[in-house]
Structure formats: C-alpha cells, structure tokens
C-alpha cells in the first residue's frame, strides 16, 4: 500500500492538521509516513498545503509531483491540484462552496458538502475532520479507530472532551462518500 496525498485549502481550515493526523495514525499502525508542509509566507493567507505519504514500505521522496489523492478545500486548490492527480486517483472537494468543481473524467471525484455538514454540527472547525473521514473511507489508509487514537495523542488533555465531536465528524464524512 502506498498513498501519496496532498491536502490543500485556505490557511486556518486545518489542512496541515489533516495530513499530520494521518501521519500520527500511520505510525500507530506501524506504517511508514512522511508529512511535508509548505510553510513560510504561504501559510499566511492564500493556500496552505501539505503532502502526506503513508506506505507499507520505505518512502523515497517526501516531495512528489503527482498524487494518488488530492483533498482540496477551496477553489484555488482545485485549480492547482486537479491536474496533478494520477489517472485513477481521487479528488475530494468541498461542494458546499465551490463554483467550478473538478471535471476530469479519468479520476474519481468526491463532492463532499463539508462546510454545510460542519454547520449542522454547530462547529465550523470540524470541517477538516469530516473531510478526513471521507478520505479514509475511500482510501482505507488508516482505520477510524486509529485516527481517534492519534487525536488523543495530539490533543492536550484539556481538549479530550472534543474527541466525541471529532468522531462524529469523521463518521459523517465517511457517510458522505459511502452513499
């Protein structure tokens, strides 16, 4: 198994966290992982993105030009990464606020209304977790339980009360692509 993914969106949407959680979960499942942020000025406003690679064997380059999956949380990200998805790969996008959705026919397109779903949960911050749920449901890179364990590791103790909400968000995301 090798999953080379890019997570992209506006700064503040939690795209770096999505990749990072995947990394933590990968380590828990004893997989090889690498997470590479695009950092610096790009982090402030504009698009933020990170590459996350999860694999059963040693990972060569942490820098890649094409992806198995692209998670795009805003319009500029779709434009930037749609054509970098490998044939047969996946693109996930937030269908609640996208004007020009991806159009390629040689990849799987997952329209996920994550913003809407987040609003329903009365917490816009869990948008990324909903999307991450969709991502793991499709790619099967890590199990949901592992992701929750990863959350426990990452979140300071005082935020552990938020884990059930995150779990709910992940489940909603999984449901979005199961339909």
């Amino acid at each position: 198994m090798l999953q080379e993914a890019i997570f992209s969106g506006f700064g503040g949407q939690g795209v770096l966290t999505m990749g990072m959680l995947l990394g933590y979960a990968g380590v828990i499942e004893d997989k090889e992982v690498t997470w590479m942020p695009s950092y610096g000025p790009e982090m402030r406003g504009g698009t933020a993105n990170c590459i996350a690679i999860v694999s059963d064997s040693l990972i060569s380059s942490p820098i890649i030009s094409t992806f198995d999956s692209a998670v795009t949380l805003n319009q500029p990200s779709i434009e930037k990464f749609e054509y970098k998805v490998k044939v047969g790969g996946n693109i996930f996008y937030d269908s609640s606020n996208t004007i020009n959705p991806p159009t390629r026919e040689d990849i799987n397109i997952y329209a996920c209304p994550v913003s809407e779903e987040a609003i329903k949960l009365r917490n816009s911050k869990v948008l990324n977790m909903i999307m991450l749920g969709a991502f793991i449901e499709v790619t099967k890179v890590v199990k949901m339980e592992t992701l929750l364990k990863a959350l426990e590791q990452v979140l300071p103790e005082r935020y552990h009360k938020l884990i059930p909400l995150n779990k709910q968000a992940i489940e909603i995301g999984m449901g979005l692509v199961r339909k």
């Binding site: 990394g23 990968g26 380590v27 992982v33 997470w35 590479m36 942020p37």
Partner: peptide, 9 residues
C-alpha cells in the same frame, strides 16, 4: 529547511 520541518516516523 524541509528536513527540519517535515514529519516522519
């Protein structure tokens, strides 16, 4: 900088 900033197992 990339090796400094990236995360790995």
């Amino acid at each position: 900088g990339a090796i400094g900033q990236m995360m790995e197992k």
